[in-house]
Structure formats: structure tokens, C-alpha cells
Amino acid sequence: PEEVRRLVEELYRKGVSPEQVKKILKKQGIDEREIEKVLRRIG
């Protein structure tokens, strides 16, 4: 979803590592598979 992409990109631009991005967003209840999809697209 758009909102997940925005959150991931925001953290990524701040220099947060992909592993940390995953941890942070998982705590917020976001599906890990969604996060990984976005990270793959960015990375």
C-alpha cells in the first residue's frame, strides 16, 4: 500500500538500515511482507 511505501522511503532516506526499517514498522503492526516488497523495489 501507498502508506507503507511512504513510511519505508522516509526511514530509508534518513539512513535507517533495511533491518531497522523492518523492525520499526513491524512494531507499528505493518505486515513484514509488505515492508520487504517495498525495500526490494527501493534497494
Rank of each mutant, 00 (worst) to 15 (best):
E3D: 10
K37M: 08
Q20S: 09
V8F: 02
L7E: 03
I24A: 06
E3K: 09
V38E: 15
E3C: 07
P1H: 12
I30E: 02
I35H: 00
Q28R: 08
I35Y: 02
G29P: 01
I24P: 00
V8T: 03
E34C: 03
K27L: 11
K22P: 02
E34M: 11
P1M: 12
E3R: 06
R40D: 15
K27P: 05
E9Q: 10
V16T: 08
K26C: 04
L11Y: 04
K14L: 10
R6Q: 09
E9A: 06
E34I: 13
E19G: 13
D31S: 10
E19Y: 14
G43W: 13
E32G: 06
V8P: 00
E2V: 09
L11F: 05
E34G: 02
I35L: 03
L25K: 00
E9N: 05
V38G: 01
Q20R: 10
Y12V: 14
R5Q: 15
G15K: 06
E2Q: 10
V38D: 01
V4D: 01
Q28T: 08
Q20F: 10
V21M: 09
R13K: 09
G29K: 03
E3G: 07
I24V: 10
P18V: 10
P1S: 14
V21R: 00
E2T: 10
L11H: 15
K37T: 10
Q20A: 12
R5G: 12
R5A: 14
K22R: 13
R5W: 14
I24L: 09
V16S: 08
R13F: 14
I42G: 06
S17A: 10
S17Y: 06
E3T: 07
I35G: 00
R40P: 02
S17I: 07
Q20I: 09
L11A: 03
Q28F: 09
G29S: 03
D31I: 04
E2N: 11
R33N: 13
V21D: 00
R33A: 13
E36L: 05
L7Y: 06
I42W: 12
K26Q: 09
S17K: 13
E34L: 14
P1C: 03
R33Q: 11
K27Y: 09
K26M: 14
V21L: 13
L7V: 06
L25G: 02
Y12S: 05
R33F: 06
I35T: 04
K27H: 10
L39M: 05
Y12I: 14
K27R: 11
E2G: 11
V4Y: 04
R40W: 12
P18F: 04
K22H: 06
Q20P: 00
R6F: 08
L7Q: 11
G43D: 15
K23D: 10
K22W: 10
V21H: 00
E19L: 13
Q28L: 12
K14W: 08
V8D: 00
K37P: 02
P18I: 09
Q28M: 12
Q20T: 11
D31G: 06
E32C: 06
E10G: 09
R33P: 04
E3H: 08
P18H: 04
V16E: 05
I42M: 12
K37S: 09
E19R: 14
R41K: 15
L7P: 00
Q28N: 06
K14P: 02
R6T: 08
Y12G: 03
V21G: 01
V4F: 05
E36Q: 04
I30F: 14
E36M: 04
R6I: 11
I42L: 15
D31R: 05
L11I: 03
L7D: 01
R5S: 14
K37Q: 12
R40L: 15
Q20L: 11
Q20M: 13
R33E: 14
R41N: 15
G43F: 15
V4T: 07
G29V: 01
E19N: 13
Q28V: 08
P18M: 07
Y12Q: 04
E32Q: 06
I35V: 09
I35D: 00
R41C: 08
E10R: 08
K27T: 10
K26G: 13
V38R: 01
I24T: 09
I24Y: 06
I30D: 00
K22V: 12
V4K: 01
E2D: 12
K26T: 13
R5I: 13
K26P: 01
K22N: 03
K14D: 07
P18L: 08
V21Y: 01
V21W: 03
S17L: 08
E10F: 11
V8E: 00
K27D: 10
K23F: 10
R13C: 11
S17R: 12
V4Q: 02
K14G: 09
L7S: 03
S17F: 07
G43L: 15
E2K: 11
Y12M: 12
E2Y: 07
E3S: 09
G15E: 03
R33T: 11
L39S: 01
I24S: 05
P18Q: 08
V4N: 02
G43V: 15
E34W: 04
I35K: 00
L25S: 00
K26N: 04
P18E: 13
D31W: 03
E36P: 00
V8H: 01
V8Q: 00
G29Y: 02
K23V: 11
I30A: 03
E9G: 04
R41A: 15
L11N: 01
I42S: 03
R33S: 11
G29D: 04
G29Q: 04
V4P: 02
I24M: 09
P1D: 13
G15I: 02
V8S: 01
V16P: 01
G15R: 05
I42E: 06
Q28K: 09
E2L: 07
R33C: 05
R40E: 15
I35A: 02
V16N: 07
E2A: 10
K14R: 11
G29I: 01
E3V: 10
R41S: 15
L39Y: 02
E36D: 10
E19Q: 13
E9R: 13
P1G: 10
R33K: 12
R6V: 12
L39R: 00
E34V: 13
R41W: 15
V16A: 09
K27N: 12
V21K: 00
